[in-house]
Amino acid sequence: MLASALVGATAGARSMTPLAAVSLASAAGRLPEQEGRMKWLANPWVAAGTAALALGELYGDKMKSAPDRIVPAGLAARLATGAIAGASLARPEEKRTGAWAGATAAVLASFPTWLARKQTMVKHGQTKTGLIEDALIVGAAALVVGLGARALSR
């Protein structure tokens, strides 16, 4: 369940990144195929679509008009993508627990990441802080998905 919670936590900062990470890993065959796995995530079109949405989010986050991640729609998106990503890194018999862990971590991580970003933006600006946050979150999601895939294949 740790991988499910950690991948969900990355959704707290970038809602589409964990979904793109698990979909790309599934499409590349890096997540083991098990009964109950969300096979639709392995579809190359889904992987390309989630990656495009994640890239769009990375770009849009730097815009002055970007809403805060803690607005209701932002929290709803994080809850949903955290749940899906969390479930995808859980064993089939633990899929619901993985979804809860991912969703909960996504919502809980939204607030401290938002606060940290707001505080650092005062000194370093929106674009610089956003690029650093992007690198941290994309790297963390890739790392967690890789470690989660390894744990699932045991």
Rank of each mutant, 00 (worst) to 15 (best):
V22W: 02
V22I: 12
V22Q: 10
V22P: 10
V22N: 05
S26D: 12
S26T: 05
A27N: 05
A28Q: 13
G29R: 12
G29K: 08
P32D: 04
P32G: 06
E33N: 11
Q34A: 13
G36S: 08
R37I: 01
K39Y: 04
K39S: 13
W40R: 07
L41Q: 09
A42T: 04
N43H: 13
P44H: 04
P44S: 06
P44M: 05
P44D: 11
P44Q: 05
P44N: 06
W45F: 08
V46H: 06
V46M: 09
A47I: 10
A47C: 06
A48R: 01
A48K: 00
G49D: 02
G49H: 01
T50A: 14
T50L: 11
T50E: 09
A52T: 14
A52E: 06
L55H: 05
L55Q: 03
L58S: 10
L58I: 15
G60M: 06
D61Q: 01
D61L: 05
D61N: 08
M63C: 07
K64C: 01
S65T: 13
S65Y: 07
S65I: 10
P67E: 04
D68W: 03
R69G: 15
R69P: 02
R69T: 15
I70C: 04
I70N: 12
V71C: 03
V71F: 06
V71W: 03
P72V: 07
A73Y: 09
G74C: 02
A76K: 00
A77E: 10
R78D: 04
L79R: 00
A80T: 13
T81P: 03
G82T: 00
G82D: 01
G82W: 01
A83S: 02
A83R: 00
I84K: 01
A87Q: 00
S88H: 11
S88M: 03
A90P: 14
A90S: 13
A90C: 02
R91T: 09
P92S: 10
R96E: 15
G98R: 00
G98D: 14
W100N: 05
A103I: 12
A103Y: 09
A105N: 12
A105M: 09
A106D: 08
V107Y: 14
V107L: 15
V107T: 13
A109G: 13
F111D: 06
T113H: 06
W114R: 08
A116N: 07
A116V: 13
A116D: 08
R117D: 03
Q119L: 08
T120A: 13
T120P: 01
V122C: 00
K123F: 02
H124F: 09
Q126Y: 00
T127G: 02
T129P: 09
T129I: 15
I132G: 10
A135H: 04
L136H: 03
I137A: 14
I137P: 02
V138Y: 00
V138L: 13
A140I: 08
A140M: 12
A141C: 04
A142R: 09
A142E: 09
A142L: 15
V144L: 07
V145R: 02
